[in-house]
Design a protein around this nucleic acid. Structure first.
Lengths: 146, 146
DNA sequence: CTGTATCCGCTGGGATACTG
DNA sequence: CAGTATCCCAGCGGATACAG
């Protein structure tokens, strides 16, 4: 492999023993996984968010993303995004090297969904937090009251 | 814990050594993780999708979800969803026991976003697949040609 | 600066057996 | 049927060292 032990490709063409999702249903919820796997990547969303305003370099991206993403994960993330056609990577063969990342048309078409997700999250976070608190309160000492 | 080695609570109040996300930014992309963590759960989305038409029992849910979700994961998933206030769980103390799951108001407010995600995924899957194929073709034998 | 290869811990998640 | 507890493994993801 070229990018570490995980590789960039997720499931296809790499191993012949991992169906992952059988895809029985015709088209309804079948493709959701494709996006969610990318969105659930823990970092992909942030890259998309940070790239929404415009082009950013590797280091800029790393600094902009909250949560201290490691070099390794940023590389893996942008590579996957690039492979999916959501991000365009441009290398300037200078010294020191400079690499710029930007959203493609496809990537930009996702930003409004990410925005919607973020809006929903922000709008309902209080409700969710309250629900969690209530749940926790109702379940404290369920199997650990000794 | 009451539900296995993983527990239901994700990060808060359980351990004091896991900040996970520092949340430096005021409110822009900060709350995205909350939703994405839930959506990236690999199964949560499917539960929401399957519950969109209406109430379902545990076993029904398990059968309806593509990819053969295990009992354990379905339990964990619906518990988390319940804790977040997205799903309501109703137990009928019959023999044999019967438990019904349904979306709450909060949960239903998410369905249109999930739908949007699914639509986007379906609409752009060909483009993504093409991009992946192109990327793979351009990167075959990068570090494994020996 | 940008990226790759290696080591390693942690957690998600499957299989299974048991309870009510 | 619904749920819990245990075992166990694969993979994600962090830290680090090294290369162009």
């Amino acid at each position: 492999m070229s990018v570490g032990h995980t590789g960039v490709t997720t499931s296809a063409e790499s191993g012949s023993a991992g169906p992952v999702i059988v895809c029985e249903t015709p088209q309804d919820e079948c493709g959701v996984r494709d996006v969610l796997d990318r969105l659930g990547d823990k970092w992909s969303v942030y890259v998309v968010v940070e790239l929404t305003p415009g082009t950013k370099r590797f280091k800029e991206l790393q600094r902009a993303i909250p949560g201290n993403i490691s070099q390794r994960m940023l590389t893996l993330t942008v590579r996957r995004l690039e492979r999916d056609g959501l991000v365009k990577r441009t290398v300037y063969p200078t010294v020191p090297p400079q690499v710029e990342y930007e959203l493609t048309e496809l990537g930009r078409s996702l930003t409004h969904l990410v925005k919607a997700l973020a809006d929903w999250s922000i709008a309902h976070r209080p409700a969710i937090a309250a629900s969690q608190a209530a749940w926790d309160a109702a379940h404290t000492g369920e199997g650990m009251r000794g």
